[in-house]
């Protein structure tokens, strides 16, 4: 077993950020708590937008993706464990409840060809752009 030097700063940071956020969200949110999944967005060489959202253990049928007026919205819910009651928890760090995130996409996206897949807890949404959105090489004419 490798021994790791105890780093109070790391310990505190990991503890306090989560706890404080929890405290504040409890205070603001009351009963209906929501969470924010982490999302990466990148553009491929073929000018397709790829959006990847971390949604571990969210069922496919509990994820709702809509595209309306240039805004892509993902909504969903992670339901609590069925095999146990809250009293039997020793540690709760994961978020349960609903989430919503929206992203404004450029007008050049091809809404009809948006595709989504879910693997290993990551939702991948591929948003291709229309042909005219792709960069064009412009020739300089000589006199």
């Amino acid at each position: 077993m490798t021994l790791v030097r105890w780093n109070p700063a790391r310990e505190l940071a990991s503890m306090e950020i989560d706890r404080l956020n929890q405290m504040f969200s409890d205070f603001y949110g009351g009963v209906s708590r929501s969470w924010v999944p982490a999302v990466d967005v990148y553009e491929t060489d073929t000018h397709e937008f790829v959006l990847k959202a971390e949604l571990p253990e969210v069922k496919r049928e509990d994820i709702d993706i809509t595209f309306d007026n240039g805004v892509l919205t993902l909504k969903g819910e992670r339901k609590a464990e069925v095999e146990t009651s809250r009293d039997n928890y020793h540690r709760v760090e994961r978020h349960h409840g609903s989430f919503t995130r929206s992203f404004t996409l450029p007008a050049t996206v091809d809404a009809a060809r948006i595709q989504a897949s879910y693997k290993d807890g990551v939702l991948t949404i591929r948003v291709p752009q229309r042909e005219e959105a792709k960069p064009k090489q412009i020739e300089i004419e000589a006199d």
């Binding site: 095999e83 146990t84 039997n88 928890y89 540690r91």
Partner: peptide, 8 residues
């Protein structure tokens, strides 16, 4: 993030 619980 980790959850730990006991089952029946």
């Amino acid at each position: 993030a980790v959850d730990i619980y006991e089952t029946g």
